[in-house]
Design a protein around this nucleic acid. Structure first.
Lengths: 206, 206
DNA sequence: GCCGTAGGTTACCGGTCAGTCACGTTTGCG
DNA sequence: CGCAAACGTGACTGACCGGTAACCTACGGC
């Protein structure tokens, strides 16, 4: 019996693709990601997360020092995924910054218009977390600062008349799409984000 | 002793001109507005609000049916103030929709760049309140829908090539300014919101 | 002088919050 | 086999949550 399992494990031929041996920590991260994003960070307690992840609070605190740390970790993971997605989209149009921005906005629109979208996890966290010393704050700030840097860099590569202004304007559009998704849904102004970006680019590069 | 107190009260010669005769309900509203906006709705309890307003929880529940109702009322008041401000700004440029939008964005930037600004109270509430039946939800939705209507109307009056698209794009810029204020502060992309709006208008009306 | 309204006070309810303790069980690995 | 890491369980702390009961006091107008 033990041998069989060992073989299966070492061979990495999972019994079924249904996560059978996922570590508690991973299950908690997955559950927390889901609940935090859908219901909000403050609205979800650690007990709920632990139970929903098929474990309990004590096991939770064996993997995470505190809820605040879990939140910070959750946002770090969201950030990682976001840049992965960004880079992948940009890579498809390497050397063509204008096409890159357009593709990025197309991706934003399609992602934000999914019916379970609730905007940007990092931005939402910025609204919810107001405590000065919270470990999630630097994560949020660094993420958005990096996003601004990238937009400005892209505007520069596009040889925009005023790269800083175009980059910032694109970022406002980007962030506005997230917020507008939450208030006016997926049939709201978000739909026009990509077109608005194109218009803005054209105005800055004629 | 009792007589003395009575005299002081009836003469209304407050010890110091510190708001002597404000109704409990008004004091609670003022305090709640402040705390909800600065710290977030979920982060502030009714006990804190009551105490901070110089009263107690029991008196709180004599003026409000529930915390949820107070939140809804808070947002209704924010909405009223917002339209008051909007109309006042627009009235200064009656008949000139383009100047109206520009003035509105100038106002947005100057308001959002104040050091105690935390973006839009209604939008922040949309992030925090995820419960379907919450009495604040319809307030938020109606407010943002009306805002979209107004932007589209203004775009139409400007004789934009695609009024719906311009109106929505302006709204994305508007909402993005709020969100960007929270993540990148008052020296962030918000600064360029008015210029971005002008560029967008120009692109749609050439 | 009396009564209604507004407000203050204290204690309490059941529930949930984050976080901990002590102990028992499973599991992988040498 | 045996050890140790990983994990499950239930009870518990102290604080706070939204909300309520019962009672008392001050004040303004008739």
């Amino acid at each position: 019996m033990a041998r069989l399992k060992k073989l299966q494990g070492s061979e990495d031929i999972g019994v079924i693709p249904v996560a059978p041996k996922t570590r508690v920590r991973d299950r908690i991260m997955r559950t927390a990601t889901d609940l935090f994003y859908q219901r909000g960070i403050r609205a979800v307690g650690v007990d709920t997360i632990a139970t929903e992840a098929g474990t309990n609070k004590m096991s939770f605190y064996r993997s995470f020092a505190s809820k605040d740390e879990l939140v910070a970790e959750y946002l770090r993971e969201e950030e990682r995924d976001a840049w992965l997605c960004w880079d992948e989209t940009a890579a498809a149009h390497a050397g063509d910054p204008r096409a890159q921005v357009e593709a990025l906005f197309d991706m934003l629109v399609s992602a934000t218009c999914k019916d379970d979208s609730r905007g940007c996890a990092l931005a939402n966290a910025a609204v919810e977390i107001t405590e000065a010393g919270h470990p999630a704050r630097p994560v949020i700030e660094k993420y958005k600062a990096e996003m601004r840097r990238r937009f400005r860099e892209l505007a520069r590569e596009m040889k925009a008349l005023d790269p800083g202004a175009l980059g910032d304007a694109l970022m406002l559009l980007w962030e506005g799409s997230y917020l507008s998704r939450l208030t006016l849904g997926r049939e709201g102004p978000v739909r026009g984000a990509a077109k608005a970006a194109r218009a803005l680019i054209a105005a800055h590069t004629d």
